[in-house]
Design a protein around this nucleic acid. Structure first.
Lengths: 221, 221
DNA sequence: GTACATACGATACGCCTAGTATCATATATC
DNA sequence: GATATATGATACTAGGCGTATCGTATGTAC
């Protein structure tokens, strides 16, 4: 699945609905160019913030004409988002053990790990850019955050169903309490969240998640 | 106290330490200009994102020469931050009732309310801009976030001391769990957090904060 | 008052970047 | 071969950031 934030002026291939994988007329889009543009954007983001990257720089590094870039993407943010979603968006799946709490802890640990990498910088950059780019913000929510939330929701609901979590646990609030601190830390703190941070968080939250009878032998830090 | 992110090239009035309120030689800085610049920046931010505001626009609206702006501030972000800290940074104090938990809840409710106003947009903008501006980020931490944290820390420690909160409550993690979800929501969600959001969060977190004996009659939503 | 130091306003300027436009050329379908 | 679309090269417009200059205003020191 390719998530492209297309140029608004770009007409859709066929009528506005239906996947219609039918071939279009004329020379087809060059897949190599597309991929090398995304890769160039990612490479440049590893050492630069987004405002420091110019479309020309991406074009040069990708060995592509700038016109080609703007034919397919409306702006820099769109490129970065597509690159992020397609090439680096964590395929950090949730583990599936007997303990939903443990699944959450392990997963968040991985998220924290990812935050410390170049991907963390990309995420920060994208969230930041979303503040001044409603289209990007909407795309990030639709293609990234809501997916994460759905995953987490499943784990939490499984925990509730199994009796591990309180029956009246507020799932949505729980998700916010899990991801919120990490994003908070990512955006505000100069040093990205790490495993210890996650463990402390989880140690605190488990009091609120677990059924009374399960709250004893707690470790997690 | 005026928090200015000064031009780095600007020499300090006297030797590099000591407040030295002594008058400098020459024409003194025009306080009216300074304030009208800050007010202009705030006014423009109410309807625009930061990238959409130009230094020229601020200068024009403030009735001031652009050169005057750059004499005192190194860039737009610095202006906005100073305006934010000096003129709108919530003097949202914490209430002080018998219940630390209730103090936290009421305070966060006020924070959420603030997030829904123009101030929320400024805060979003500043956090976003911090991602590409280390100096701004450091200033925000030093003059805003660490202050908020210190306030919250005091309340939590009071709650621990009074026996309302668990003795082993992890204060720093608790702060992250309180503010994290709000900032998370502020940055990701198109609609800013509100009182109901806070109440649900608090209802969840109180299970983790309160001593066992106090967890019964819970409402908060 | 005069000398000096600094701030302010107006304005022009250099530089960089985003995004557009044009046109020749390449590559697909019919 | 006709048609439709993509790419490359390049020039171009528009606008913003931040600097520089210079004349003028406003304070202190003597």
């Amino acid at each position: 699945m390719t998530v492209t934030l297309r140029r608004t002026s770009r007409p859709s291939p066929s009528s506005d609905q239906g996947e219609a994988p039918q071939r279009r007329l004329g020379r087809p889009r060059c897949e190599d160019s597309r991929r090398s543009i995304l890769k160039a954007a990612i490479a440049l983001l590893k050492t630069n913030d987004l405002p420091a990257i110019s479309a020309d720089a991406i074009a040069e590094r990708a060995g592509v004409s700038k016109a080609t870039i703007y034919r397919w993407w409306p702006n820099k943010s769109a490129i970065v988002m597509e690159a992020f979603l397609e090439m680096v968006a964590p395929h950090t799946r949730f583990p599936e053990t007997d303990s939903a709490m443990e699944d959450l802890r392990v997963h968040l640990g991985r998220v924290a790990e990812v935050c410390q990498s170049d991907i963390g910088r990309m995420l920060r950059t994208l969230i930041a850019d979303s503040q001044a780019n409603a289209e990007l913000a909407a795309a990030m929510r639709a293609h990234y955050f809501s997916v994460r939330r759905a995953d987490a929701r499943k784990v939490i609901e499984r925990g509730i169903a199994s009796g591990e979590f309180r029956g009246d646990l507020d799932t949505e609030a729980a998700i916010d309490c899990l991801y919120g601190p990490i994003v908070f830390r990512l955006m505000i703190n100069p040093v990205a969240p790490d495993a210890e941070f996650v463990n402390r968080m989880i140690a605190l939250l488990r009091q609120a998640f677990l059924k009374r009878s399960d709250r004893r032998n707690v470790t997690g830090r």
